[in-house]
Simulated assay, not measured.
Amino acid sequence: MLKTLENMPRDGKFMFGHHDDTMYGIGWVGDEGRSDIKSVCGEYPAVMSFDLGDIELGHDVNLDSVPFDKIRREAVAQYRRGGMVTMSWHANNPLTGKNAWDVSDSSVVRSVLPGGANHEKFLGWLDRVADYLNSIKTADGVKVPVLFRPWHEHTGSWFWWGQALCSTEEYKALWQLTYDRLAAKGTDQLLWAYSPGIEPKDTAEYLERYPGDSKIDLIGADAYQYGTNAEYMATLDRILGIMEQVSREHGKAMALTEAGHESIPDSTWWTQTLLPVIAKYPISYVLVWRNAHNKPGHYFAPYPGEPSAKDFVKFHADRRTVFVKAGGEK
Rank of each mutant, 00 (worst) to 15 (best):
K13G: 12
W270M: 07
G305D: 14
H90N: 01
P304F: 09
T273G: 05
G42K: 02
L218T: 00
G186H: 06
L191V: 13
S107Q: 13
P211Q: 08
G12Y: 02
P304V: 09
W175D: 03
D131C: 11
S214D: 10
Y79C: 03
K325F: 05
D213V: 01
R238D: 10
Y171H: 09
Y303S: 06
D11C: 11
W270D: 02
W161F: 15
R238Q: 11
L236C: 03
T155L: 10
V85Y: 01
G297C: 00
L182H: 11
V76I: 11
K201A: 02
D102W: 14
I71L: 12
D31Q: 11
V313A: 07
D266Y: 15
G260N: 07
L191Y: 13
I278S: 02
Y299H: 12
A130P: 05
D188H: 12
M87S: 04
G212T: 13
F50T: 12
A183N: 04
E43I: 14
Y303V: 10
V47M: 01
Y24W: 08
T203R: 13
D20F: 04
G241D: 13
D127F: 07
N93R: 07
G156F: 05
A130E: 02
Y194C: 01
P302A: 03
K185T: 12
V61W: 06
L190N: 09
A117Y: 02
D54A: 05
G327W: 14
S195R: 12
D213C: 00
S106G: 10
T187M: 15
A130W: 04
L287C: 12
E74P: 01
K143D: 10
V144R: 06
S111A: 04
V144L: 08
L5R: 13
L165P: 11
W269V: 14
Q245I: 15
T22S: 04
A255H: 08
F14Y: 00
H152L: 01
Y171W: 09
Y224C: 08
I264P: 07
P211A: 09
D36R: 11
R209E: 00
N7Q: 09
V277N: 02
G162C: 04
H90T: 00
N134E: 06
G260D: 04
L191D: 08
N118P: 13
L2A: 05
S39N: 15
S107V: 14
M243S: 02
A326H: 07
S214P: 05
L240Y: 15
P307K: 11
P276A: 10
A292Q: 08
T155Q: 06
K70E: 13
D102N: 14
F148Q: 01
L165F: 13
F159E: 05
F68H: 01
P282Y: 06
F122M: 07
R73W: 10
E199K: 14
T138I: 08
T138R: 08
D318W: 11
Y171R: 02
E32C: 08
D69L: 14
L126T: 10
L52M: 10
H250C: 10
I71G: 04
S111M: 03
A184I: 06
D180K: 09
G42E: 02
S49R: 06
H293R: 00
P296Q: 07
L123K: 14
F159M: 03
W160L: 11
L147W: 10
M233K: 14
